[in-house]
Write a protein that binds this DNA or RNA. Structure first.
Length: 156
DNA sequence: GCCAACGTTGGC
DNA sequence: GCCAACGTTGGC
């Protein structure tokens, strides 16, 4: 089982939105960056755990946890001309873009702000600190447990 | 709203 | 294949 950090703008899709989905499950679609796409297509597996991060707001933060319930498959929004994520280069034969499905797990008792992440030397290696634009990022087990601890969650 | 970082595109 | 121009992201 691997760990990831998924970024989203809460004005577009928030952690509360995920909780309010049927079965608390939703497609993670719309990723249009090749490095992030490669993670979704090749590495993200069912059962992997996800830090749910809110970006582009006054206080960006990890707000909760989710789990992957379906591994990478073609992102059909790229084929839909009415979708804002439509990509004319994508086709059923060559979907180009991939998505996974995620399910809500639980909110952190205390969101872990980017500011706290940046000031924790043990988290300096997180891509979030140096490569903030990458929307799908791997997280190490140590980083995962540190974030959960900072978020007020008991971890074994 | 600004701007730095960085990814993508396209001319050559 | 290089690199300048351009577009997007996201912190502030």
């Amino acid at each position: 089982m691997a760990f990831w950090l998924f970024k989203t703008e809460p004005g577009c899709f928030s952690f509360d939105d995920l909780r309010n989905c049927p079965d608390m499950t939703e497609h993670w679609d719309g990723v249009r960056n090749f490095q992030a796409r490669n993670f979704l297509r090749d590495q993200v597996q069912v059962g992997d755990r996800v830090l749910f991060y809110h970006s582009n707001i006054p206080e960006p933060a990890v707000v909760g946890l989710a789990e992957v319930v379906r591994a990478g498959y073609p992102d059909f929004t790229a084929l839909d001309p009415d979708s804002e994520h439509f990509d004319p280069k994508a086709s059923p034969q060559n979907p180009i873009w991939y998505m996974v499905d995620v399910r809500y797990l639980e909110a952190l008792p205390r969101p872990v702000t980017l500011e706290r992440i940046k000031t924790n030397p043990l988290l300096a290696a997180m891509p979030l600190v140096s490569r903030s634009r990458l929307s799908i990022q791997p997280v190490t087990a140590d980083q995962w447990h540190m974030i959960l601890s900072m978020g007020g969650m008991k971890t074994p």
